[in-house]
Simulated assay, not measured.
Amino acid sequence: MVNPDSDLYRTHPDWVLKIPSAPLLLSRNQLVLDLTRDEVQSYLFARLNDLLNEYPINYLKWDMNRAIHQPGDQRGRAVGHEQTIGVYRLLSRIRDAHPDVEIESCSSGGGRADFGILAHTDRIWTSDNNDALDRLGIQKGFSMFFPSEIMGSHVGPNVCHLTDRQISMETRVGVSMFGHMGVEANLFELDDNQIKALKAGIELHKEHRDLIHGGTLVRLDTDTLEHSFGIVASDKREAIFSYTQIDSLQNSVGGSLLFVGLDKDRIYSIRIIWPEQPQSYSKSILDVINGSQISGEALINVGVQLPIMKPASLLVFHLLCVD
């Protein structure tokens, strides 16, 4: 991108994508540099290469933050595909020169989520919306095409900038830990209890990161008031399942969570590992669930009864084979 009120554009007005017979269309006060041109490629690589050599930078957020409305070159040819190949070519050159720099593909999240760019980047920013409840659906959709290990999922601030919703730190952490976890909150605005919960959640993510990033994702059918899924190890000796109560349930008794994907012939120990102090309107159910040893067949077909919880709260279960 380039701002028309810049030395670069004033020096090289021919370096932008445009339709010669049409006026230029700005978005965010920007035009789009024509990456099909070798001189543009060389200029951008030189600037980035200088920065990466001079400063200890280990992460680049490659944010393609405006749409291409006029995908034409100087001769009036449509070059939308060639522009995409140009992005890949520039990223490949940067990666070859700086193999230890982590690169994130971003464009309001999913605007730059494609399989081609994965050859040149390490992760994809899933969405600018980091509201934990909205993220449940966003991350489920993302998982239909991409693995969790490249899914940027961050713990957001106390108040989401897009929804104005306030969600507990425990729920924000419990949603974000199932991807490429990060923090996108001002730590100085968090109280001591929130800092404690955030630190504990990060440690929990690290403890189970290999399973979260390397296991088999199991999608579970739930109604609109709930959201559930699981991740099962390839040998089925370990699994982690998440249940979120999005809104108030209509029943006086909680439903059952089925642990699909386990080995029916094994015995599993089941523990609630998040949040550290689960809260519900029926604590006795949580006491019975926690630490129980149950057959895989029962967990798959009958499951465990869930408590009635407050809206926007969740439980994360860890299952480990004991036989």
Rank of each mutant, 00 (worst) to 15 (best):
N186T: 14
V183R: 02
L217E: 01
N193I: 08
G215I: 03
E207C: 01
S108E: 15
V218W: 07
D191L: 10
V155C: 05
S105Q: 09
Q139A: 10
A132Q: 05
D134C: 12
S143R: 10
G137C: 05
H81G: 04
S127G: 01
L90R: 07
D134I: 00
H98Q: 04
V175I: 15
L133W: 04
D128M: 06
T126P: 00
S176Q: 08
G109K: 02
H98P: 01
K196V: 09
A119V: 06
M177S: 04
T216Y: 07
R172T: 11
D221L: 10
Q139K: 09
L190S: 03
N193R: 14
E170A: 13
D96T: 12
T216K: 15
H208G: 00
P99Y: 04
F145D: 07
A185P: 00
S127A: 07
F178K: 00
H98V: 01
R172G: 05
S143M: 08
G214Y: 12
I117Y: 03
E104W: 04
R172S: 03
G201A: 11
H154M: 14
G201S: 08
G156F: 01
I138C: 07
A185M: 02
D221G: 07
G201F: 05
S92G: 13
I103Y: 06
D122N: 15
P99D: 02
R112N: 10
L217T: 15
Q166M: 13
L211F: 06
D164I: 00
R95P: 02
I103R: 02
H154N: 09
V87A: 05
L211Y: 03
L220D: 09
L190H: 08
G80M: 14
T222E: 07
S127Y: 04
L204A: 07
N129E: 03
E82A: 15
H208E: 04
D221P: 02
L162H: 09
A113D: 13
F188I: 12
E170Q: 12
M177L: 15
G174S: 10
K140D: 06
E184Q: 03
R89V: 12
P99Q: 02
L118P: 02
P147I: 05
L211N: 10
L90K: 06
E170M: 02
A119L: 15
G201W: 05
D221H: 11
D223F: 11
I167R: 13
R93Y: 09
S108C: 08
P157L: 00
S153R: 01
L220S: 11
E203S: 14
G141Q: 10
D131M: 01
L90V: 14
E149C: 12
N130F: 08
I195T: 13
H161Q: 09
V173W: 08
Q83M: 11
